[in-house]
Each structure stands twice: as C-alpha cells, then as structure tokens.
Design a protein around this nucleic acid. Sequence first.
RNA 1: CGGGGCGUAGCUCAGCCUGGUAGAGCACCUGCUUUGGGAGCAGGGGGUCGGGAGUUCGAGUCCCCCCGCCCCGACCA
Length: 541
Amino acid sequence: MVAANLPFNPPVAHVITPASHFSGSPMSKRALPVTRAENFPEWYQAVVRDADMAEASPVRGCMVIKPWGYGVWELLQRQLDDRIKETGHENCYFPLFIPKSFIAKEAEHVEGFAKEMAVVTHHRLKNVDGKLELDPDAELEEPLIVRPTSETIIGDAFSRWVRSYRDLPLLINQWANVVRWEMRTRLFLRTAEFLWQEGHTAHADEAEAREHTLRMLEVYREFAETVLAMPVIAGEKPENERFPGADNTYSIEAMMQDGKALQAGTSHYLGTHFSKAQDIRYQNREGGESYCHTTSWGVSTRMIGGVIMTHGDDDGLRLPPAIAPRQIVIVPMLRDKPEDAEVLAYCEALQKELSKRVALGAPVRAFVDKKATKSADKRWNWVRRGAPVILEIGPRDAAGGQVTFMRRDHLRDGDKIISTASSREAFIASAAALLEEIQASLFAEAKLRLDEAITPIASFADLEAFFGAAAEDDEAGVAFKGWARVAWSKPTGEALETVATRLKALKLTIRNAPMAQPASVGACIFTGAPGVEEVLIARAY
RNA sequence: CGGGGCGUAGCUCAGCCUGGUAGAGCACCUGCUUUGGGAGCAGGGGGUCGGGAGUUCGAGUCCCCCCGCCCCGACCA
C-alpha cells in the first residue's frame, strides 16, 4: 500500500514559507504557519496555539488550558460523565495527597510509578536572610505523594466501605487532576499534571469484575466514536504494556494523521492484587470472607490531543459539533455604517432562533462574534479554532433574509473557500441536521483513514520492510506508515521481552489485540509458532 | 537523564561569522480611504535580544554556567 496519499490533502504545490504565510496569492493562504505534511509535530503545536486551546505555563510540563480548550473539555466531560452515571457509577472526590506508605502497598504499582512521583515533604517555608527556604522543623513525618492515580487511596476507602456481599458491586468514579513527572511533555498529549476521570469498582466475583472492565472499555469506544468522532480500536494490551498491578489492561487506540497510535483510554481488571494489598474483603453468602475483585479505568485531557490530531487540517482545528463550545458562529460584517445596527439585530435574532434548536442531544450553541475587529480576522480565527459552522452576515443578507455560511469540515474546494448562501428559514430549519452531518462526516473521514491504514503483515521481514524503509530520514515525522496487523503466539515473560526489543529497534510497540478477532489466525511472525491472536503494531505517542 | 537543534516584539523570522547601542512581515493602536470578504495609505505603541556571570571603552553578536522549548533515545494516560 502506498501510504503517502492517505492522510493529507495532495502535497501543496504552493509551498508556504513560514515568514510570509499571509502574503502572496490569496489562493495559497492557509490559516496556519506550517502544514501537516511539512512538519507534523510543529503543526500540532501551531494548532494548539492558534486555535486558542492551551499554552505552556511557567511550571515545566504543565499547561494553561484556555477557555476554548477548557470548553471542549467540559463538553467532553459532561457527556462522558452521563455515560458513567448511566452505567451505575457515582462520583466521589478523594484527596490529592497520598501517604507514601499507601503507594508502597502494591509491589508492581510502586515499581511502575516510583520514577515519576511528585513528593511533598514540608508544610512550611522559612525566611532565611530574605530567602524562602524549606523549614527543617516543618518536615512531614511521612512524605505525601501527589497522586499519580488513586488506586491506593480509594482502595483504602473501599476496605472500610465494603463489609458484605450486599455492599457490592461498589461503583465509584472521580474527576480529578493527577501528576506524573514525565521526562518529555507535550501539550495535552503528555503533561506533568493532567485532568482525567478515574473509575474504581469492587466486585464480589471475578466474572463480574471482568465483565465490568470490558463494559467500561465499550463505554469509552462508543464515547470516542460518537462524541469525539474519533474511531478507535478496542483491544487488550500485551502483558508488557499492562498497568502496574493489573491482571489485564485494555485500551482504545486511535490513529493520528501521521499514522501513529494514541492510547485514548484504558480499562484494567486488577484481580485481587489491590484488595489483598489493602484488605478489601467482604463477608460472602456462606458467611466466609472473600477478597474483592477490583477494576479501574480512565481517560484524560490527552483525548483532546487525539481530537486535534484526528480532525485538524492545514487551516487549524476542526471540532466535532458534539464538543464544539460554539457550534455555529455568526460573524457580522460591520462597517462602521448606520446599517450595522440592522445587521447586528439580524444576527442576534438568528442566534436566538438557532439556540432553540436541538442537535446531537443538546441545544444548538450559536454565537454572534461582536468583537470590534475586522470581520475577515474574526472569520479566520474561528476557522483556526474549528467552529463547525461559520456564518458571515452582511447588510445584503440581512435585507434579503439570507445567510452565507461555511462548513469547517469541508472548508475548501482546492484552494477556494466554499461559501454557501441559503435563506434564513431554510438554514434555521436544517441547522441541527447540518451539525449532525458534520459530526458524521468527520467520523467517516477518520474511520476511512483508520481502516485503510491497517495493513495485514505476515512475517517479521515484511514488518521491517514496511516500517523500516523510510525510518532514517524521517526527522520531521512525516512518513506515514499506519498500523500493521499481525498474528502472534502471545508469548509471555522473557520471550515477550525479546519480541518487545525487536520491535523497539523499529520504534514499534504492540498496541493491542483487537476485541474483534478472525476465526483462524496465521503463524506468529516472531516465533513461527501457531498464532493465538492478531495484534496491532504501530509507532505510538 | 544521553545525542542533536533552537531561544531576538503577540506570531514567523533577519541581525551573530567580521562587537559600535535593535529590525522586517503579519498582528495591535490612531486617522483617512476602501467595502460581499484574510484591503490601501499615513502615523504610532510594543523587546532588560531566555537568565546569570565574564572579556571589552562598548556584547543580541565573543567566552563560561544555568534555564526553557523542539526532535531522537530511555519512560509514559
């Protein structure tokens, strides 16, 4: 398969020089200083910045999420929260700080997180010769860990909350911030502090806990595809990619436009590891004592990075309407003339009408951009931010009962901006359908890309050829490879480490074993032994 | 934390080699002109040139140290 023409528009003939991307022929203008094809990582950063999503903060690795980015998070959060509650969970809040001894309770858990924990050791500062220093007299008896995840502190609560089988299942979720001191950070994709949701459940028996783990994975899959319009492959992580302390880890994996995989959500079956470590026991029907089987699962602000790299184009972000803080933006063409008042009144009336409509299960979010700047600038700002529908309303529209609109998902025909005129009534009547169509078309576009870019590969040599060929001069991360789907014998322990090492040489990892498996599987590409299942292999974020 | 690259205006960058007191385009402000589309002209605001310490009469430019960002590696939602 030739991958080069998969993700992007045909390579632009009119190469845009960074210093002058707003000059030159109007036909060649793009809203961003760099295209995906030129440099994908730089393009990503440009979108985050120019779409007003977030910015770096004075604290290394931490970000400021700006109103437009946080608005996306709130919509994402609300719709996922609904689903979490529909599946029987209740929200709680647990402390930011976790006693060091708690983390130490589960051996693998410690090992997995020890290298990236922020530790609070003092509770007071002292002024020493005009300098603020840690007060040696205020050292904590036991250091506190800023939570990297909350299994241990929630497990501690569970051990008190669970007495009898009648208390089970215990289904809890929390929305919180967590801290993992990462070596290398990228806005949204990997930050030292991030926002997420973590679900924690305790069950009487293994089968129910396992079922619940998969149920939440399915909630994530449906959520990602329906709300974020981001197609994913749900599957089980190989043993070496498991969450520290889990028996099984499942993920949803999304394909970014550079062909890399992004783990967009995880769900873990924790067995009885944490319940044994933390004494989460219950009295069973027979009067004896049993350990609970626990699960945990989470998605984070990383998903927003996934949305950007799934839907963004060379003009900026394209937001699925379901998570667009403003779905229909009305830009009045104001000209400092008396008729401005009429145009504005027309726009406001239009906004009011649109807001009465319901699309994707919620009132339409329509907005009139009254900011006193040039309308052309306002238009391009909304293009970069990815507002799904942008209207430009001038005096002629107002007088004639018309609207002129652009669809952000299909902004251009070649280099030309597609602007459509419609009667006001027809537009209002079809606005909800339009938003739903945009939601569907963004999904369809990404789904097609994902499906076409998964290549079955039957031998390790072919895998090397497939991924290795252009690996050398791929400094800008341009070469699009997509994913490979291969059969393997599911080795464990050292045999698996060997596989991982061979893949690492190609910068590859096993993403997951998709839930949907074929009836029969070929020979393992690593060992030649009979295959047990098929797995996806990719470069990853 | 290792290897490479880079930090000059809000953004994209020039100036650094060959030291002489800070620039361009876009953005922003004011005025005039223009008006179905990222307009034109004129004027203007904005930078302790990432930070510190040195060499020098003089440092954006040379030397040293530190910090941050980006890419690759190790680690990871």
